[in-house]
């Protein structure tokens, strides 16, 4: 088989597998603003959870100790946690704070409140360079 026909055959194979009907790439300004507002709503839900006396069991809220989500350091995760004896990700530390100061029950990692809490925490830390592993 000639080189050219080999290339042609491969191209046909790819086209057959991935039908390029409407083209995947382009998105509109409308899309961008929709996605941004979907994100913003989750950040707002995160702030609500962060100040919700019902998130835990004793009425204590995250913002009591972390005003503007300060000292949550999302940019440092994953990192080694001395007390766990291993590398942990941020939602594990969020659950630690829910269990202890809030005397509450762990949230599942995909619980919408857990996702929202992380969105809010990260939003308040925007602009800070990633520093995984930092203490």
């Amino acid at each position: 088989m000639s080189r050219l026909s080999r290339v042609r055959q491969a191209a046909w194979l790819i086209l057959a597998i991935v039908p390029v009907v409407g083209a995947a790439d382009p998105f509109t300004k409308q899309d961008l603003s929709d996605w941004q507002s979907a994100y913003d709503q989750v950040v707002t839900a995160g702030r609500d959870a962060f100040t919700d006396p019902k998130l835990g069991n004793n009425g204590v809220v995250c913002a009591q100790c972390h005003p503007n989500a300060a000292n949550t350091h999302p940019e440092t995760y994953p990192k080694f946690q001395k007390q766990l004896g291993r590398v942990a990700v941020m939602w594990e530390m969020i659950n630690w704070c829910i269990r202890n100061p809030l005397e509450g029950k762990d949230l599942q990692p995909d619980d919408p409140r857990m996702i929202a809490l992380q969105a809010y925490i990260t939003q308040e830390r925007r602009g800070v360079a990633l520093a995984p592993g930092k203490h």
Binding site: H66, P67, A70, N71, E124, R125, G127, V128
Partner: peptide
Amino acid sequence: AWAWPYPETYAQ
């Protein structure tokens, strides 16, 4: 009761 972060920890 509890300690607060220092103000410079709020990056905004």
